[in-house]
Nucleic acid binder design. Structure first.
Lengths: 156, 156
DNA sequence: GCGAGACTACTCGGATATATTTTGTCCGAGTTCTCAGGG
DNA sequence: CCCTGAGAACTCGGACAAAATATATCCGAGTAGTCTCGC
């Protein structure tokens, strides 16, 4: 899984904390976590495209949350950055080689292996969808929020 | 996720079906699914190293299951091929940049984002661990097993 | 005819190239702020 | 003093390289089968 997911989640958390200071340019966020600014920007762009962040161009521009933290699930962020494709890709190799001669009705049901993997992924997705940005805020020490706020205000 | 997982699972299923014909050389398995033999071998090697398959060298050699299908979970296969590393890697960026000045006690608890992602992965792992190779056999049409058996015996 | 020994064919295991994805960088379009000039 | 307008600075967005990983291939070590030669 891309490290962009970690970056994106942390940035969303900061943007939720500091919504009153929004919009925040990517450079500030990059400084807050000591990340390469240009690459971080590339990672946040799909979040804007997905309607999680809203981008504002020009001076005093930057990114801000486009929804309330309660309506942004971890699944939303992961899907936006990683893309909607399933981690496990079934290429239907059962139909190749020896399976070439199989009757069509035999393949009416999806591949058992694919089904099993899909089930596991579904459990993963369910957990991610049940956790929102607001939950992350609740489970993060307030000292971190205050320190980040001071950091951003100081470099403003 | 690597396609080797799909290949490995299908090959394990075949080896479970055709245990009486074992050991099966990689070339046969590759023909059964129309896969590149050399690369498939590379994918099965970690399964042998993990104690899921047993390799036998020399003529009439090949791979066979090293345990009963009931004791081989999908988690075992996935872990062997993909490696034990978590899909989501926490690099503790909270401690960098603005977090540099944080008090040590603040970092006593693990990162909330990491915890949330870990929880989702745990659900994923639990589902994979609950499904064994024997379950896959039960959920696969017997016609597929018979056809594969004939295919292997014909090219023997 | 039977047994021993060397040879050949076949298999896995690890080391070596190629392709693709991920990671990182750069330049251009657009917007806002600033500042100078005129009314 | 206020308004207008041009300029400059800053931001995002997408196109362009470099590095890392996944994909694919090749060669060497070892083992079982086979064939030949001797008894």
């Amino acid at each position: 899984m891309s490290e962009g997911v970690e970056w994106g989640l942390h940035c969303c958390l900061v943007l939720a904390w500091l919504d009153d200071l929004a919009p925040l340019p990517v450079g500030r966020l990059a400084e807050a976590f000591d990340l390469p600014p240009e690459y971080l920007k590339k990672q946040l762009q799909p979040l804007a495209k997905a309607g999680i962040l809203r981008s504002e161009a020009g001076a005093r521009g930057g990114y801000r949350l486009d929804r309330t933290p309660e309506t942004i699930s971890l699944m939303d962020v992961v899907t936006a950055i990683e893309g909607g494709t399933d981690p496990f890709q079934c290429t239907e190799i059962r139909k190749r080689g020896a399976g070439r001669a199989g009757a069509p009705e035999e393949f009416a049901h999806p591949c058992g292996i694919s089904t099993a993997m899909r089930r596991a992924e579904l459990a993963w997705r369910r957990e991610l969808a049940n956790q929102t940005l607001a939950d992350l805020i609740a489970n993060t020490p307030a000292t971190a929020e205050r320190r980040t706020r001071r950091f951003i205000e100081r470099t403003a």
